[in-house]
């Protein structure tokens, strides 16, 4: 069995595609430490100029919201329509607003 391999933790990989964009999650990989995770991420996820910057983070260090996208956790943002510009009626002849 491969007990040795099980000791390599799982990392999540985030890549900035080009300057001006956010880092985006692209997948995961196993590595012995942070440095190896970065070099593996370069070899695995940026073989064709897909990135200019990489973040890696141990998967176990990510805290996540609950599983369901329709979760009540997000309800407070749904019932505050006044946060959106379309909530406000402005006459058509008012310019640039």
């Amino acid at each position: 069995m491969s007990a040795d391999k099980q000791d390599w933790p799982l990392y999540e990989v985030f890549v900035r595609g080009k300057r001006g964009l956010n880092h985006v999650h692209v997948g995961s990989l196993h590595a012995a430490d942070d440095r190896m995770a970065l070099t593996h991420a370069r070899d695995l996820y940026t073989r064709r100029n897909e990135g200019v910057s990489i973040w890696v983070v141990r998967s176990e260090h990510i805290a996540a919201s609950t599983r369901d996208e329709k979760d009540p956790f997000f309800a407070p943002s749904a019932d505050k329509v006044y946060r959106h510009p379309t909530f406000y009626d402005i006459p058509d002849d008012v310019p640039h607003i």
């Binding site: 990510i62 996540a64 609950t66």
Partner: peptide
């Protein structure tokens, strides 16, 4: 990943329907 917030799980019938 760890879950920091957990809502009460809906019943299985509801889960299947949602899926």
């Amino acid at each position: 990943m760890t879950t920091s917030l957990s809502a009460e799980a809906p019943p299985p019938g509801h889960l299947q329907e949602h899926f």
